[in-house]
Amino acid sequence: MPAEKQPVPFRGAGFDPTPRRFASWIAFAGILLAWQAASSTGLLPELFMPSPDAVLSALARMSASGELWLHLGTSIRRIVLGFLLGAFAGLLLGLAMGIFSMARAVGLPIVSALFPIPKIALLPLLILWFGIGETSKVATIALGVFFPTAVAAKTAVDGVARNLIRMAQSFGTPASAIVWKIVLPGALPGILGGLRIAASIALILVTAAEMIGAEYGVGALVLGAGNLMQTDKLVAGVVLLSLMGLAVSFGIGLLERRLLRWR
């Protein structure tokens, strides 16, 4: 090699995701602005897509008339009730399948067979069984929440490190205390992950559940607005649904931060 000096360039840049706090807000605002601009200039005809200010004013009108709160309250009640029922039953079965060999042998094939059935396909059956009142709507949501919760709980229990259970046994911890002190806390991250998915499913299903016989509810609002071609109300309803999704995601995130501080 000749005695030439060669600088060594830095080659390790990029592929290193770093948090950008305001980027998402700026992007969101940018999209809204572009949408509003396209609507205002007539590039995006009102016939095909309402402008953001039309959506906002639809929300404001519904809020002022109280319609909005009636829809929201009705849906939230259905979601909360269905979610609690489905999650509780799913947790019980999932934990049982994770802990007891018999429950697993009986439950797992049944759950695996029923999980992939779209619950919307069962809606007519649910209506035959539970009528067109609140029961069938809550049942649809509960059913949708039940299966992912059960599977997540079972998988989470499977994932609890066996060495921790052996350790507790070696210290003379009784079996029931092992479930409370080792299995449940160890499965908690997986269970919360399952509940996060289940909550999104509950939100998706509320629209389906409110297709039949519902006068109020955000799902009924969206469907009704669709039937009436009230696109501003329709998009307003979709905005409500996505806000509910954000709220649920935020709530579960809060729960995770609180319960899983140790991670």
């Binding site: 490190a161 060495n163 052996r166 350790m167 003379g172 911890t173 002190k181 080792i182 140790w262």
Partner: peptide, 20 residues
Amino acid sequence: DFALLPWRSVADNVALGLEH
């Protein structure tokens, strides 16, 4: 592999053997 409970503090991990 130590077999510590990640959701318990050091003192609470030590406490496990004393709890029952």
